[in-house]
Design a protein around this nucleic acid. Structure first.
Lengths: 249, 249
DNA sequence: GAATTTCCCGCACAAAAACGCAGAAACCGG
DNA sequence: CCGGTTTCTGCGTTTTTGTGCGGGAAATTC
């Protein structure tokens, strides 16, 4: 079989099944693995396939896309994500809600981290999927199209079965008196369940949202363990929360 | 034999078999390899054949296999999606697997359709989420990063609770004897569960995957109700499947 | 962290191509 | 018919290309 023929065959097969194993190819075509590998390499250089350890993938199926532009006060969220990262260590089970702050956290996870992340938010899950080492558990249920999160009794039941080390909540509003509040009933239910199922509850919130109130109550300050904002811990705005027994970072 | 004769013979042979080896040609015509090589070179310069190491290939060969345009056989998948759409009506519960063919189906759903779609494939779910009217149920569990689908016992258990009207399976390989086969163990488990939980099982497959086999078996032909390809229903390739009791569209 | 698989690199060897050359055949205008 | 020219072909030699193999590095898996 000629080299070009072989490559055409490989390409054909990759496109057909979205992936090939070099081991199976070499028995199929009856050539050495080296040859297959060289073929794959050439095809990869031409951009026809994506070479991976053990074989190759089709180019078409592999780009799940997400837009990160236009996120409000992204820099603040990045610093929040940094601080949150300090709480995470290998082997942890971590529940997270949705929201752009959590997205930023997902993006900034160190690549060598090995932990398990659980969420029902599609955009956040997409971020987690980019990470090389973490395990990702997706909470299933009906999808709410505007919040892009799974909602419903199944999702809540599933969360309640969990026993996570940390729960990171993207927070829409936090207030010394009214505690954590939000504006979507379903999301509130989920957050309540998450709080119940976690040993430690951490709220991520940009300073702007501190001391603001939304219509639906999630929980009081007594139920959260830590509040992370982009401000230094000794900022006077945060003082009331420290007094209320919440750790601040 | 005259040079022109020889070249005509070569050209004829290339067009007939899509390929030709210079070694075999030189014994056939009884001339030295150099002569053959010079002939091939001339033909190549005239654009009549494509010269490669060891022989030559026909132009059509190159066109057929190296279709370098973006997504592979997308048009075929579009027509498959059209046919599948004909089976869907308002109010249905529809289970779908993952794969690019299903993605195409998701994209081509008519905007006014009101039905419920269930899947564990992240890319497919993303497509469903674009739709204005359908309900989307996400099967949760651990995410497999390479297949971008939720896998595991939870997912399977959840699928088994369903009772869907139709199950659309993106098919990696279908064969009259070996039935439906695939190359990922986890995915096979999910597909099996989906088949069990649906009143009607429909396989979507481009014609190229028909009569191909993959390592792991999903089910036999007796378990599927319909096969949709881009070919007309009376294409001879599909005849064996009709004989096996599978509807074809 | 150890075992296995896969990858990468250099090498050897064979097949094929390129090149130069020379002989043979064809062509051609005296 | 005959030199001279062109074209075609085959033959040796040198280069290039394609392939397989072994060993060590790297990645993956358990």
């Amino acid at each position: 079989m000629l080299k070009k023929e072989r490559q055409a065959y490989i390409l054909h097969k990759v496109n057909l099944h979205n992936r090939v194993l070099s081991s199976s190819l070499c028995t199929e075509i009856n050539v050495s693995e080296d040859t297959i590998r060289r073929d794959l390499q050439e095809l990869a250089e031409e951009g026809k396939v994506i070479k991976v350890h053990g074989g190759a993938l089709s180019h078409s199926f592999n780009h799940v896309y997400f837009s990160s532009d236009g996120v409000y006060s992204q820099n603040h969220k990045k610093t929040i994500a940094q601080k949150a990262n300090a709480l995470i260590s290998n082997g942890m089970f971590i529940l997270t809600s949705g929201g752009t702050t959590i997205m930023e956290l997902a993006r900034s996870l160190p690549p060598q981290l090995k932990a398990t992340f659980i969420s029902g938010s599609i955009p956040v899950i997409l971020e987690y999927m980019q990470h090389p080492n973490i395990e990702v558990i997706l909470i299933g249920d009906k999808i709410s199209k505007n919040s892009k999160i799974t909602i419903g009794s199944e999702a809540i039941a599933k969360i309640k079965q969990m026993n996570a080390d940390i729960c990171f909540l993207g927070t829409n509003a936090i207030h010394t008196e009214h505690g954590i509040t939000d504006n979507d009933w379903e999301v509130v239910q989920l957050k309540k369940a998450m709080i119940e199922s976690s040993k430690m509850v951490v709220c991520l919130s940009i300073a702007e949202k501190v001391n603001s109130v939304q219509p639906i109550r999630v929980c009081g300050l007594d139920e959260i363990d830590m509040l992370i904002t982009e401000l230094p811990a000794d900022d006077p705005i945060l003082k009331p929360y420290i007094d209320a027994g919440v750790q601040v970072a």
